[in-house]
Design a protein around this nucleic acid. Structure first.
Length: 465
RNA sequence: GGCGAUAUGGCCAAGCGGUAAGGCACGAGCCUGCAAAGCUCCGAUCCCCGGUUCAAAUCCGGGUGUCGCCUCCA
């Protein structure tokens, strides 16, 4: 497996800390609002990473956190008069439901910040003891000057005057780069007891504490891979790494992976721009699997410009897989073709090169269709192809539906019966060589976006988007 | 202002020094009563200018465009 490491800034051979095992931590969402396409893309990208490692026979431990205590959540509490719990449990459930529609598996461990407070407090106590953190009137800060490697992750040089001019000045901080580990309570908001003062955790500390709690190794590195969106590299990941380095003497992660953004009309979706395309809205229009396949089909590091037109084009590629599935659906699976499996896995082992993998898959599809055309009764071959498709389902999280149902998504039962009746009428007309009548019926159905196809197994229909 | 990424045929998109994968769209053919589906065939010298090399889309330098990070963010 080769992966692109954001810190080394190049593609490197992945060597696990412990043979045949991989520990992955992904930064999950702050749960105060609905997830948008960017969350989906990140989740799908690293879900693929996880599936590929599993397919390569690694023992995978996959952790994704929920940030469930934060300024924005508190603001929402004040706005809506809801409790913290009410808000976060609502959005966590919605996030997980939506991710499941996208066939993103739940993580093995899904820690919440509020359930990690004890560890966070311990973590900060140790940093205070080690004198790499200090207290001011409102917060406990991390002292970045104590970390000689600070900024080595994001390769940044901070110009004290220019680049931090946009940050609100705080005279109590020793250095503008220093960041809050703990914010003392101002009253009337959720807070936790701590030896250094009642309050709540800052954003960066939870990931370091969670990794230590759930995953940490003894050795140079605590985990194998830390992943997240490209916007997290600085300051979030830089700060996580610094905390852990100064607290435990270990590097947080051996490899760092960052996914590119989803843009709309070439512009990043972001909360401040207010141009977010929420998943709940996308899922009202598009099937989750179609959306997954679309978001999956561009390499995870590249920026992804979302457009409905491209989504529909991408669907056509998925349709072809489903049509092949129809052709082999009645034949029980045998074994995946080794050459096919090997070729797809080797494509994906190259830093998740999905484009290459899809090309290999398309080649398999074309080849399979050709041979089934030539020899429609070759059950042994169909069994192999069926097995290939089933294997792809586990590897990519696609082609999971019944292939007939897939083409009928969004068609109501009554409408289905109506379609079947029209098809029967058309078939009678065809038998009587009344092609005018048959074509007229076909036109009626086409007007309803129903496409007919006469096959050896009778007339089939598909809903066209 | 500082830092970084990227620029490939009509569109999406691989490529990581040896003479441009794949998908969609378009066109032609096979198949079909006709279609649809499926199969086959068909198109680019890679933003510009210099340089390194026997050899560059791929490396280096300089431009130009686009995007991002530096503030919550996947």
């Amino acid at each position: 497996m080769f992966i692109y490491d954001s810190v080394q800034k190049k593609k490197v051979l992945f060597i696990p800390i412990k043979e045949n095992e991989v520990k992955i931590y992904v930064c999950g969402p702050t749960v105060y609002d609905d997830a948008h396409l960017g969350h989906a893309r990140s989740a799908i990208a690293f879900d693929l990473l996880r599936r590929v490692f599993i397919a390569l026979d690694y023992k995978v431990t996959f952790v994704k956190n929920f940030t469930d205590i934060d300024d924005k959540i508190i603001n929402k509490m004040k706005e809506n008069g809801q409790s913290l719990e009410e808000i976060t449990s609502f959005y966590i459930k919605r996030y997980k439901d939506e991710m499941n529609l996208l066939h993103v598996s739940d993580a093995d461990i899904e820690p919440k910040a509020t359930e990690t407070v004890v560890e966070i407090v311990d973590f900060i106590e140790t940093m205070l003891e080690k004198n790499v953190a200090y207290k001011t009137s409102d917060s406990v800060y991390f002292d970045t000057s104590k970390d000689p490697k600070y900024l080595s992750l994001s390769h940044r040089f901070i110009d004290e005057d220019a680049s931090l001019a946009r940050v609100v000045q705080n005279d109590e901080k020793k250095d503008q780069k220093d960041f809050a580990l703990w914010k003392f309570t101002k009253g009337n908001e959720p807070s936790y007891q701590a030896s250094f003062g009642e309050g709540r955790p800052g954003w960066h500390i939870e990931c370091s504490a969670m990794i230590e709690k759930h995953l940490a190794n003894c050795g140079d590195f605590q985990i194998d891979i830390h992943a997240g969106g490209a916007d997290l590299l600085f300051p979030h990941h830089e700060n996580e790494a610094a905390q852990t380095r100064c607290k435990s003497g270990q590097e947080l992660a051996k490899y760092w992976m960052h996914n590119g953004f989803v843009t709309i009309s070439g512009e990043k979706m972001s909360k401040s721009l207010g141009n977010s395309f929420f998943l709940k809205d996308a899922l009202r229009i598009y099937d989750g699997e179609v959306l997954r396949f679309y978001l999956l089909s561009t390499h995870y590091r590249a920026n992804f410009n979302f457009s409905e037109e491209d989504l529909l084009l991408s669907k056509k590629r998925l349709d072809k897989l489903y049509r092949l599935k129809k052709r082999v659906y009645e034949t029980p699976c045998s074994e995946v073709q080794p050459t096919f499996k090997q070729s797809v896995l080797s494509d994906l082992s190259d830093d998740l090169n999905i484009s290459k993998a899809l090309a290999s898959i398309d080649e398999m599809v074309a080849n399979a269709n050709e041979l089934i055309d030539k020899n429609p009764k070759d059950k042994a071959f169909k069994a192999l192809i069926h097995a290939n498709l089933l294997w792809l389902e586990s590897l990519l999280g696609i082609i999971a539906h019944d292939p007939y149902m897939y083409f009928q998504i969004g068609v109501r039962e009554a409408e289905k019966r109506e379609i079947e009746t029209l098809i029967e009428q058309r078939n009678s007309a065809k038998k009587e060589k009344n092609f005018q009548e048959a074509d007229a019926i076909r036109s009626i159905l086409e007007g309803k976006n129903i496409q007919l196809m006469d096959t050896l197994n009778g007339t089939q229909w598909e809903k066209v988007l």
